[in-house]
């Protein structure tokens, strides 16, 4: 039977842990609001840009661009977005599990897979295993368009240099605070959406300077924007996941403290009872 002091010590330790998890939860909650706003603010641009590309691709005569080129997908790049820090529940685990599954599937199709990585967690994971690693980005901090653009440019360069034939993006889409959905998206070659904006359909456009020139500048930009948006999504998801994880950790700590306190009191009472009965027993013996 543990002594009173042991239990007391354990309670103190759990209480301290609870303070930490609860503080982390607060921090995550504060960050979440900002992250959420940023995700929502970034969506219109990405969406409008896709609409413009769709219009360009459907209403212009068949325009050619290297980023639209479909090649036999022998070499595939998977860009995996994870977080730098842990303590966010199943956030990283679920995305990494998904990544491994996806890679296996590509390999089963006889494709050569390279993994590009954002986030320390994915790097630690893939470094220990036998996968072909491409470029790694870590410690991005708060995501701005400037942080996302180089990643997009890198993938575009790889694709244009024919280093890779298909680029996929794997990230956690921010659905709500408690749900994140692991999403696999094809980044390159760009596949313009079939249906274009009903407003603009079947309109003959005037292009300035020319459809090719516009497409040539908008496609690389589109990739940057996609990367930017998914980075924001995955960051918001991370903060959301951390908040949920820390919330349940705080609650578990509370339960645990309750159980330990009960045990502590029981032990204390058992001791008192024992002492009384000893005294009573001693007094009886003296009679």
């Amino acid at each position: 039977m543990p002594s009173l002091r042991d239990i007391q010590r354990k309670i103190t330790s759990v209480k301290k842990t609870q303070q930490i998890t609860s503080a982390m939860k607060m921090v995550a909650a504060a960050k979440l609001r900002r992250a959420q706003e940023r995700v929502i603010a970034a969506r219109p641009y990405a969406r409008k840009m896709l609409a413009v590309i769709a219009n360009l691709a459907t209403s212009a005569e068949r325009v050619q661009h290297p980023l639209l080129a479909k090649r036999e997908p022998n070499r595939v790049t998977l860009l995996v977005l994870t977080s730098d820090r842990g303590l966010c529940g199943a956030y990283n685990t679920s995305i990494l599990r998904h990544a491994v599954e996806t890679i296996k599937q590509f390999q089963a199709e006889g494709k050569d897979v390279t993994v590009d990585i954002v986030g320390r967690k994915a790097r630690d994971f893939f470094r220990k295993r036998e996968y072909k690693l491409g470029k790694v980005w870590m410690g991005l901090g708060t995501i701005g368009y400037e942080t996302a653009a180089p990643i997009g440019q890198y993938v575009v360069e790889q694709f244009i240099a024919s280093e890779t034939d298909d680029v996929y993006l794997l990230y956690n889409e921010f659905k709500s605070v408690i749900t994140q959905k692991v999403t696999l998206e094809k980044l390159l070659p760009v596949e313009p959406p079939e249906e274009s904006d009903p407003f603009m359909r079947a309109v003959d456009y005037l292009y300035e300077p020319s459809a090719e020139a516009i497409l040539g500048s908008i496609l690389p930009k589109h990739i940057e924007v996609q990367v930017y948006r998914s980075l924001l999504e995955s960051q918001a998801s991370e903060v959301g996941a951390r908040m949920t994880a820390m919330d349940s950790a705080t609650r578990n700590a509370k339960d645990m403290i309750g159980r330990l306190t009960l045990k502590f009191n029981k032990t204390r009472q058992a001791m008192i009872t024992k002492e009384i009965s000893e005294i009573v027993g001693g007094a009886e013996a003296l009679k």
Binding site: V52, N55, L56, M200, V203, D204, Y205, L206, Y207, E208, P209, A211, A213, I214, S217
Partner: peptide, 19 residues
């Protein structure tokens, strides 16, 4: 400010896409 020069748009303008 279009890349080929500044342009003005009034309601009813023709469909137009520019940098």
């Amino acid at each position: 400010p279009g890349s080929e020069g500044e342009f003005g748009i009034l309601p009813g303008h023709a469909a137009f896409l520019t940098t």
